[in-house]
C-alpha cells in the first residue's frame, strides 16, 4: 500500500511538472473548465427564476440544490483529475500495442493503467465546488450537524469509488472492441443522470429509470447520497441510503476488478 502511494505520488509529481512546463495551457484549461461550470450554474440560476424548487414538495429549493450541485462538482473533479485521463489513454494503448509494455512492469496493471496520469486542472472545479458548498450550506435554515459532516466525506468517497468502477469497466471494454469512443460518450451521458436529484425521475418512465440507476448501475447514489446527508436530517430511514452507498461502492469495486482482469486475460497484443 505504501509502495503504491509512493508510486502514485511520483506519477502526480511528474504530471504536475509537465503541467507547469506549459503553464499558460494549464491556466487556460482551468479557465475553460471553470467556464463550463459557470455556464451550468447560470443555467440553474435561470431555472430558479421560474420556480422555487426542483420538483413539487421535494425540498430541493435553491440553496439545497446548489449544495447538491457543489457535491457533484467535487466528486466529478476528483474522478476527472485522477482516473479519466488514464482511462482515455487505454484505447490508444490497446490499439497500438503499447499495453504490452505496461503488462510486463512489476506493478498491478489496473493500478498503473487507471492512475498514471493526473489532470490537475480538473481540480479547479472541485475547489469552486467546496466554496459553493460553503456558501449554500451557510444559507440552510437548519445547518447540518457535526455527524452529517463526519459522514459526508465517507459517502463522497463512495461516490468516487462507484464512478471509478464504472470508468474502469468501460475502459476494459476497449480491450474487446478496439475502439470505444461511444462508450466514453455513454459514461458522460450516464453521469449526466446523476447530476440531478433522484426525485425528478418520477412517473411511468422516471420510476423504472430511477430504480435502474439506483440498484443496477448505482449512478444515482453518487451525488444524491452525500448531498442528502447535508441537506436532510440524518435520522431513521435516512441512514439506509448511506449504507446502500457503502455496499454499492464495495460491490462496484469488486465488479470492476473482475471485469478488468477478465478483459486483460483476453488481450491479444497489437504490436509486432
Amino acid at each position: 500500500m505504501a509502495r503504491s502511494l509512493a508510486i502514485l505520488g511520483t506519477f502526480a509529481r511528474a504530471c504536475l511538472v509537465r503541467d507547469m512546463t506549459f503553464r499558460a495551457n494549464f491556466l487556460l484549461e482551468c479557465l475553460t473548465s471553470l467556464g463550463w461550470m459557470s455556464m451550468n450554474l447560470a443555467f440553474y440560476l435561470l431555472v430558479f427564476t421560474f420556480t422555487p424548487e426542483i420538483g413539487k414538495g421535494t425540498g430541493w429549493t435553491r440553496e439545497p440544490f446548489f449544495a447538491f450541485v457543489a457535491t457533484g462538482l467535487i466528486v466529478n473533479s476528483i474522478v476527472q483529475a485522477l482516473f479519466m485521463p488514464s482511462a482515455e489513454e487505454l484505447t490508444e494503448l490497446v490499439r497500438t500495442g503499447g499495453l504490452d509494455a505496461v503488462l510486463v512492469k512489476p506493478l498491478d496493471a489496473q493500478f498503473l493503467l487507471s492512475m498514471h496520469r493526473v489532470d490537475f486542472s480538473a481540480l479547479a472545479n472541485g475547489i469552486v465546488g467546496i466554496v459553493l458548498l460553503g456558501w449554500a450550506v451557510s444559507r440552510f435554515e437548519t445547518p447540518p450537524p457535526p455527524l452529517a459532516w463526519a459522514v459526508y466525506p465517507l459517502v463522497l468517497l463512495c461516490g468516487v469509488a462507484i464512478l471509478y468502477a464504472l470508468v474502469i469497466m468501460l475502459a476494459a471494454a476497449t480491450i474487446h472492441m478496439g475502439r470505444n469512443q461511444s462508450l466514453y460518450d455513454f459514461w458522460f451521458y450516464l453521469t449526466n443522470v446523476s447530476r440531478y436529484p433522484a426525485e425528478i425521475y418520477a412517473g411511468p418512465w422516471g420510476g423504472p429509470l430511477r430504480a435502474a440507476c439506483t440498484f443496477v448501475v448505482p449512478i444515482l447514489l453518487v451525488v444524491n447520497v452525500p448531498a442528502r446527508v447535508l441537506a436532510r436530517p440524518l435520522e431513521g430511514e435516512a441512514w439506509w441510503p448511506v449504507f446502500g452507498s457503502v455496499v454499492a461502492a464495495a460491490a462496484a469495486l469488486v465488479a470492476s476488478r473482475v471485469v478488468f482482469q477478465r478483459s486483460l486475460a483476453r488481450y491479444r497484443s497489437a504490436s509486432s
Partner: peptide
C-alpha cells in the same frame, strides 16, 4: 442513440420545474 440521453434528463428536469410552479 446516445445523443438522445441528455434530452431525457432535460425532460425530467423541466417536468419537475413545471410541477413546482
Amino acid at each position: 442513440l446516445m445523443r438522445f440521453l441528455p434530452i431525457v434528463t432535460q425532460v425530467f428536469l423541466w417536468t419537475a420545474v413545471f410541477s413546482a410552479t
